[in-house]
């Protein structure tokens, strides 16, 4: 897979001295979906804004399809579409006019067939002649997506596409994203919903206080997530684990009153039934059982707090 976007040693320091981004490095492959996770004020929007040319970088550079986004801004910006976080739209514009406006800004002439297809795909065709102020919040977000796609970008940035959006619309948004991916569009989305990253991303980046803490394959992250623990509380404390249970990944608590079994939830056989049987055979009496899973959220919170 070729790299379509490369961010090299990007730093942003505002005049106030606040450092919004610190030495961020990121390679994005063509056709992938990358989710940037991070709390509010982490620098997600600043990073996107620099790539799109809205904010100047203090240090470092951004290359899009091999072109520098400052010296060859026309080339790089033509390849990028941006859906901003806020619903920033002119209230009096009509839907199709504002989409045509975006297309023109990006140097493309009118293409009514394409705009029709775009608006149809986003369930906006019926609203094409409506003034934007008459649309619901969810519709406005679709209009923003239509505007961002009007010039057929190869890279699409979605800045918190589902912030303040109801569950149904969020699902719709995910469908839109997966359809775009089928069309070969590279997508970078920011979110603070972890399940969103889980649902649609190929890779997940975690950003906090201006630093990119990790970028990993979702599958790798899920492997960490796939581990689950079964905590078995014993009626009377055990001094040692019975020898016949050596095959299991078990850990006896210091007081000896509980045993923790770590297993892969996605394995064909978790071994739980057999373990419980063998515990009984070993004469251990159980008082209670509980399971726990370290979620992406926990990993994320730990990462962010560790800084």
């Amino acid at each position: 897979m070729s790299t379509i976007l490369s961010v090299e040693h990007l730093t942003k320091r505002y005049e106030s001295g606040h450092e919004a981004l610190t030495d961020v490095n990121l390679q994005i492959n063509e056709g992938e979906i990358l989710a940037l996770l991070g709390p509010n004020g982490a620098g997600k929007t600043t990073l996107i804004s620099i790539i799109c040319g809205i904010v100047n970088a203090t240090e470092g550079r951004v290359m899009v399809a091999g072109h520098d986004n400052v010296t060859a801004f026309r080339k790089t910006r033509s390849l990028i579409g941006l859906v901003p976080q806020e619903l920033t739209l002119g209230s009096f514009d009509r839907v199709s006019d504002t989409v045509n406006f975006s297309r023109g800004l990006f140097g493309k002439g009118r293409d009514d067939a394409w705009v029709e297809q775009l608006l149809t795909d986003l369930s906006l065709w019926d609203k094409r002649d409506s003034e934007i102020m008459t649309l619901s919040g969810g519709m406005k977000r679709r209009v923003l997506i239509a505007k961002a796609l009007a010039h057929k970008p190869r890279v699409l940035f979605l800045d918190e596409p589902t912030a303040g959006v109801d569950v149904e619309l969020r699902k719709d948004m995910w469908e839109i994203v997966s359809k775009l991916r089928e069309d070969g569009v590279t997508i970078i989305l920011t979110t603070h919903y972890i399940e969103e990253a889980e649902a649609i991303a190929d890779r997940v980046g975690v950003i906090s206080k201006g630093k990119l803490l990790l970028v990993e394959d979702k599958a790798t992250l899920m492997q960490k997530l796939g581990k689950k623990q079964l905590i078995i509380e014993l009626r009377s404390p055990a001094t040692a684990l019975p020898g016949q249970l050596n095959d299991y990944d078990l850990e006896l608590s210091p007081g000896g009153d509980s045993i923790t079994y770590t297993y892969d939830v996605r394995a064909e056989r978790t071994g739980i039934t057999r373990l419980l049987q063998e515990l009984q055979q070993a004469g251990l009496e159980l008082r209670d059982l509980q399971t726990r899973q370290s979620s992406l959220e926990e990993i994320f919170v730990n990462l962010v707090n560790d800084q």
Binding site: C52, I54, R74, S78, I80, P84, S102, L105, F106, G107
Partner: peptide
Amino acid sequence: FPKFIGTIYEILSAPIS
């Protein structure tokens, strides 16, 4: 006006001098 309502983002991010 675009500065005020925020739509200036589009002009700043467009391939336009």
